[in-house]
Design a protein around this nucleic acid. Structure first.
Lengths: 241, 241
DNA sequence: GAGACTTCATGCCTGCACAGATTGGCGTCA
DNA sequence: TGACGCCAATCTGTGCAGGCATGAAGTCTC
């Protein structure tokens, strides 16, 4: 309950920026935030420094704390992802993350088939079996948690720390997807077989088959979730040099 | 020249953690850092907050500032990437980023072919032509900068902000690769043709061909750089739940 | 229009009170 | 005697209040 004042300050300003309550280009003063939240200068300053490191604001002398345009925000920052998933930008965030999954997870499966240690293989086989069981029982809560663990484990088994680090936001997208009611009543029998196929192929050190099975899962995932963002406009910021 | 004290403090502790001068599990005290750098408490505290947000440290009462194990570091944080590229972990960082490129860039090319606005297509064609010219002249410096802009533009043209945000670290990867002497004397004629092929396919809204051309580029990239990390061990942290 | 001056918000410093986690001592009980 | 549990001292980050220094913007003068 008593989350630290620092966290509160970061969350207050960060979520307001990302949900559009404070627009890019606007300037807020540290003293305003002090009054608004009733916190002291040090708390506000530390929070601003953290938000600046995520690209949300820049603070300059004589002018104040200026909100940066969205293309400066670090879309891989866990806080930014969480705030976006809780705001109007949820659709665009789900699209970005899902496209990233489609690109990364087949590659992760391929690498896992080449490099995964034995205990990862055993755990993957175990999870696949339990997913099959939970899926056939119609136990969707268990299925979701197992699904999250399965994909996180494949990412970790790739031996690529950037892939492994995507497990958290990807888990949140899976949870978000069920909250939006975008999961089928019963997991498809095919999906269960594909997960089993990924686990089998990785255990058998068969990179090609591991990739192909994961690609099938990803294709189905996109089909199921596509409507959420179908109407969301894409943004094309010019790259900075 | 006078980089802020805050930046200095962040960089001091951050780079020391990532190059292994301070090992995970070690605790440092804020007062030690104050004495070591000669900065005041406020500067140190703000720096620690920023490093904590990147997952490098946690600070708890009565114990101090504890360095976190590497699997807690956010590998997508720009600071973390820069420090890793400048340290012993360079090989592993190049591997991670290159594997990420291999996964993401073909997908980005495919999406760009579906969604890229006209001015992005024009700029891509322009860059491809200039790359061809610089490559045939043997002007490697120009070629490198054009190459970086080309790949950044494809990522931006995908309309996926997470992809677009990878342009910076990927650009640093390309620069690092030339610094390590891993680029051919003259860019291969094939590579020039493939870049042209990507630009053509995106302009022609041909996702399949855009992806395939980019895959060819990526395959060659891996071949050229593979030796850097061939002997580096992979890390397999157990995913946290 | 170029340069000097004023203004004002952040940058940086310091002293103080508080909170919470660790440690060690103390007493109790087996 | 030794193990356990409780409690207080201690240590360190957290948060507060106020001060001076700095430098970017804007203004005024020539």
């Amino acid at each position: 309950m008593p989350t630290s004042l620092h966290q509160q300050a970061v969350d207050h300003l960060g979520s307001r920026i990302i949900d559009g309550s404070v627009l890019p280009g606007e300037v807020v003063l540290a003293s305003e935030l002090e009054d608004e939240l009733g916190f002291s200068r040090s708390v506000i300053r530390e929070a601003v420094r953290v938000l600046a490191s995520a690209g949300l604001v820049v603070s300059t002398k004589r002018v104040g704390i200026k909100v940066q345009p969205a293309e400066h925000w670090n879309p891989f920052d866990p806080l930014v992802i969480r705030w976006r998933l809780a705001s109007e930008g949820q659709g665009a965030q789900l699209r970005s993350l899902t496209e990233l999954r489609v690109a990364v997870e087949p590659m992760a499966a391929e690498l896992a088939a080449e490099h995964a240690p034995a205990e990862f293989c055993a755990e993957l086989l175990n999870l696949a079996a339990r997913m099959r069981h939970a899926g056939r029982e119609g136990d969707l809560d268990s299925f979701l948690e197992l699904d999250i663990r399965f994909h996180a484990l494949v990412l970790a088994a790739s031996g690529n720390e950037m892939f492994a680090n995507l497990a958290h936001p990807i888990g949140e997208t899976l949870r978000g997807r069920t909250e939006l009611g975008l999961m089928p009543e019963h997991p498809h029998e095919e999906a269960l077989a594909w997960h089993q196929g990924v686990a089998d192929a990785i255990s058998a050190h068969d990179p090609k088959r591991a990739r192909e099975s994961m690609e099938l899962i990803m294709r189905r995932t996109v089909q199921e979730i596509y409507e959420v963002w179908a109407h969301k406009p894409r943004l094309f910021p010019r790259p900075v040099r």
